[in-house]
Design a protein around this nucleic acid. Structure first.
Lengths: 322, 322
DNA sequence: CCCGCAGTATAAGTATTTCTTATATTAGCG
DNA sequence: CGCTAATATAAGAAATACTTATACTGCGGG
C-alpha cells in the first residue's frame, strides 16, 4: 500500500502474541493459550522483529530466551496491554455514582502548608478523602485520566477545554544562596556567581523547573547541568549545605522548612519571573466545591505562610498576593 | 473465528483513526491525513463503537462532537498511542552509552533524610544526577520501565528477577497519638481508642498504607474510612492537630519534621509489624555503585535520624537497626 | 556420537479483515 | 427549500492474518 504516515510498527494483537510467548517460553504453548496455531505466532513475532529491526528472542537456545531488547519490550508491551484493557472498562463506567470519594492532588511546594487545611475542608464533603502530593504534571495527568478529581498546581491546563480554574496565589521567583554569600544584583553578577557555585536545579519533571530553565534561556544564561531535584526540600537543603545556589520561590523555601537555616534570599536579577498556583477541576462536576475550597486555601495560606514570608522578606511586598 | 480468549476490542490503528477524527473534527479530513478513504475511517470508528458498546461521537450535529465517553477515550487513546510510539524508539536505543545520567528514586519517608547525602554521593559518579521523591510503587514502576536507574523504597520487588537488593534499615511500626491522649496497650484498647478518635491512614497507593491495612485485618480490627494521605507529613500533621491517631514508623515521624510538636508515641499493641527499606537496582548494570551507595546511606541515616530517634524513644532500642 | 523428539521456521493456500468505489442519506447554511 | 458538504452503507477488491503441511534445528538420552 502507498506510504501511510507515521504508521506504528506493531498492533496490540501482535503484542499480545509476543507477551504470550514471553510468558509460556514457547510459541507452541502460546498458540494454545491464544487459540491460534504455532506458525501464526511464529510469523507474528518474526514480523514484529522485522518491523522494529531488533531481535526480541534468542532462538539459538531452548527454551527460548528473551534478548535484553526483548526484556524491555516485554515490560513496555505489558504496560501497554494492561492500559489498553482498562480503557474499555473505564469508558463503559463513565456513568458515575454519588460523591463518596474525593481525590485531591497537591503540588509538593504546598504539601506542608495545605495538606491539613484541604483534608479538613474536604472531609465534610465526602465520606472518603484522599490527598496526594506530587508534581504538577503528574497531577494534571491524573486529572485527565480521572485518577484525581481536582488538584492545586503550577500549570492551570489552560490549553485543555472542559476545566475550571481558580487562582490561589501568585508569587515571584527569587534567588537563594548559602549563608554569607555575596548577592548578585545583575544578570552579569549572576553568571559570575555561577562560576564559583554550582546551580542547583529543579528537575525538568516539574513545571517550576521548566519555567526557570526557559527564563534562563531568555536571558542567554547557560548554566551547566549538575544536581537536580524534584522537591523544594532537595533544592533548598543543598543550598543550605553550601553546595550551590538556586532559583526558587518564597513558598517553596517555606515548604522546605529548613530548621535553623540562614540561607540568603534576594530578588531575581533581570526581568521578573512569577508563577501562579491554581486549583483545577472538571467543569460542572463538583458544583461549588472547587470555589469554596479555593477560598479556604487562600485564607489558610495567607495566615500560615504568606504573612510570615512578608515578615522575613520585606522586599517581597506586593509581589506576593492571593 | 472461534471464541478467542480476552481479545481486546480495538487495535492501535483503529485508535489512530479515532484520534485522527478527534483532531480534525471530520472523518473526511482525518482520512486525508491518514492516507485512507472517508468510508474506511467511518467504518473503523463505527466498528470501534460497536465493540465497546459506547457512542464516542455525537453525529446529530456538525461538526462532529465527542461524547463524554468519547472525550475520555480520546485522552486514554492518546496516551496509549504516545506510549506505543515511544516503545519502538526505546527498544532500538537499548544500546547504552556511558553513564552520563543517574536517576535515583527515594521514598517520601526518606526524602528529607537522604536526598542530600544521595545527591552528594552520586554527583561524583555521573555528570547529571536526578533525585526524585515519591511513592515506592511509582519508583518500582519507573525502574521497570527504565525511567529510574535505582530507588530506595519499602518494596524490594523480590518477586521480579534481574534486580539486586541491598537492605538499608529495618524499623517497627508504632502508634502516634495527639498530645495528652491515653496510650492503648492492647488491641482492645486500640479499638476503644478508635471509637473516640478517627484513624488517620496512609493511602493504599503507598506500600506502608497497604502493610498497615493488612496488619489490621489480621488483628480483625476494622477502622472506618476517613482521612488518608500519601505523605508522612500529611498523616503526622493531622495527628499533631488532634484530628486523630495513626500507625506510622519512627522514620516517617522524623521525616515529617513537625516543628514544636509533642505527639505521643508508643509501641504498636499486639503482634509486631516491621518494614525494611531497601535499595533496588538492575543486576549488573551499575557495577559496585549500588552497594557503595547503600553504605553511604546507612552511615548518613544512622547519624542524622536513627541516633536521635533512639534518644527520643528509648523503648525502640534493638528494633531500629541498619 | 548419533538418533529421536519436541519445538520453530517456512511455503503455500485459505479465511478474515480492511479498504476502496459507488452511492444513499443527513446536517446545516444561505 | 434547495444545495453543498459530510457521513453511512453496500458491494467488491486488496491486504493481512491464519492454517495446513512440511522442512529445519536444539537438545537430551542412549
Amino acid at each position: 500500500m502507498a506510504t501511510r504516515p507515521t504508521r506504528l510498527p506493531f498492533d496490540l494483537h501482535v503484542l499480545e502474541a509476543f507477551l504470550g510467548v514471553c510468558e509460556a517460553r514457547s510459541m507452541a504453548l502460546a498458540a494454545q493459550k491464544l487459540a491460534m496455531t504455532q506458525p501464526a505466532i511464529s510469523q507474528a513475532v518474526a514480523d514484529l522483529e522485522a518491523r522494529i529491526g531488533v531481535k526480541l528472542f534468542d532462538r539459538s537456545v531452548r527454551p527460548l530466551a528473551l534478548t535484553p531488547a526483548g526484556e524491555l519490550m516485554r515490560q513496555r508491551a505489558s504496560a501497554l496491554i494492561s492500559e489498553a484493557r482498562q480503557i474499555a472498562t473505564a469508558i463503559r463506567h463513565t456513568a458515575r455514582g454519588r460523591l463518596a470519594l474525593i481525590r485531591a492532588g497537591l503540588v509538593d511546594s504546598l504539601s506542608r502548608a495545605l495538606t491539613g487545611p484541604i483534608a479538613t475542608f474536604l472531609v465534610s464533603h465526602a465520606e472518603h478523602v484522599s490527598v496526594q502530593s506530587g508534581l504538577t504534571a503528574a497531577h494534571a495527568g491524573a486529572l485527565l485520566t480521572r485518577n484525581l478529581d481536582l488538584f492545586i498546581g503550577v500549570d492551570d491546563m489552560s490549553d485543555v477545554e472542559g476545566f475550571d480554574r481558580h487562582e490561589i496565589v501568585t508569587e515571584p521567583y527569587i534567588l537563594v544562596l548559602p549563608p554569607k554569600q555575596k548577592i548578585p544584583r545583575s544578570v552579569e553578577d549572576l553568571e559570575a556567581c555561577a562560576e564559583k557555585l554550582p546551580f542547583i536545579r529543579y528537575s525538568a519533571r516539574s513545571k517550576t523547573g521548566i519555567d526557570i530553565e526557559r527564563h534562563l534561556r531568555r536571558l542567554h544564561v547557560d548554566l551547566p547541568p549538575g544536581l537536580e531535584f524534584d522537591t523544594p526540600f532537595g533544592v533548598s537543603d543543598m543550598v543550605a549545605r553550601g553546595k550551590g545556589f538556586a532559583i526558587t520561590t518564597p513558598i517553596c523555601l517555606a515548604e522546605a522548612a529548613l530548621a535553623g537555616s540562614d540561607v540568603r534570599t534576594a530578588p531575581l536579577p533581570g526581568p521578573q519571573l512569577k508563577r501562579t498556583l491554581t486549583l483545577v477541576s472538571r467543569r460542572q462536576e463538583l458544583g461549588t466545591l472547587p470555589r469554596d475550597l479555593t477560598k479556604a486555601c487562600k485564607s489558610s495560606l495567607e495566615a500560615s505562610t504568606l504573612a510570615p514570608l512578608r515578615t522575613s522578606m520585606p522586599w517581597l511586598d506586593a509581589d506576593l498576593r492571593v
